[in-house]
């Protein structure tokens, strides 16, 4: 059996197992890291890698502020253990702009004022990028439904839908 096993080290007095090596590609850069088994992707990004763009709004998958793309799929980073992602590719909001050019979704969010306080925004944007890749949304109703995993307490939903719609129409991914 080829398995990664950590040593619970019951003799060290703390019962704490040691960190586990993982390889993650984050925003295009391969990172070799040692992580504790209980470290979530969100805490790894925010507290160890200083990638604070991904936000912690609830830490329980109730708000979507932590949404990132793992192997191009949108997921809640707060409910993802970093150790389980060994070998995966992670894209955060910091990795969307290319060569100093905003990603079309980022630009559309600014143009449509699709945020206010900005705290849910990185999650909204990563979620929208994921939605566009999925190609399942066509109508505004479908955009609303498929963006409902991202809460916005400032209430920017009308503008978020407009921003997503603009990018969808512009790239031909929509109707």
């Amino acid at each position: 059996m080829q398995a990664t096993e950590t040593d619970p080290r019951p003799g060290n007095g703390t019962g704490e197992p040691g960190p586990i090596p993982v390889v993650l590609t984050i925003n295009g850069t391969e990172r070799r890291l040692e992580v504790e088994p209980w470290t979530t992707l969100l805490d790894l990004l925010r507290e160890r890698l200083d990638l604070t763009g991904s936000k912690k709004g609830c830490d329980h998958g109730q708000c979507g502020a932590c949404t990132v793309l793992v192997d191009d799929r949108r997921v809640n980073a707060c409910l993802t253990l970093a150790v389980m992602l060994d070998g995966a590719s992670v894209t955060t909001v910091e990795g969307l702009a290319q060569d100093g050019q905003l990603h079309p979704v980022q630009d559309a969010f600014v143009e449509h004022d699709a945020f206010q306080c900005g705290y849910c925004t990185p999650g909204q944007i990563c979620s929208a990028v994921g939605l566009l890749k999925e190609g399942r949304a066509r109508s505004d109703d479908e955009i609303r439904e498929l963006m409902s995993g991202n809460l916005c307490r400032c209430g920017a939903y009308v503008n978020i839908v407009a921003a997503v719609r603009q990018v969808m129409d512009g790239t031909g991914a929509g109707r």
């Binding site: 925010r46 990638l51 763009g53 955060t92 910091e94 630009d107 969010f109 600014v110 900005g118 990185p122």
Partner: peptide, 21 residues
């Protein structure tokens, strides 16, 4: 006028209270 802090918010550069090292 577009928000002058908009780019910092959509790129994740805007830092909130728990995000200062």
């Amino acid at each position: 006028q577009r928000r002058i802090d908009g780019v910092s918010k959509v790129t994740g550069q805007a830092r909130y209270a728990a995000e200062f090292p």
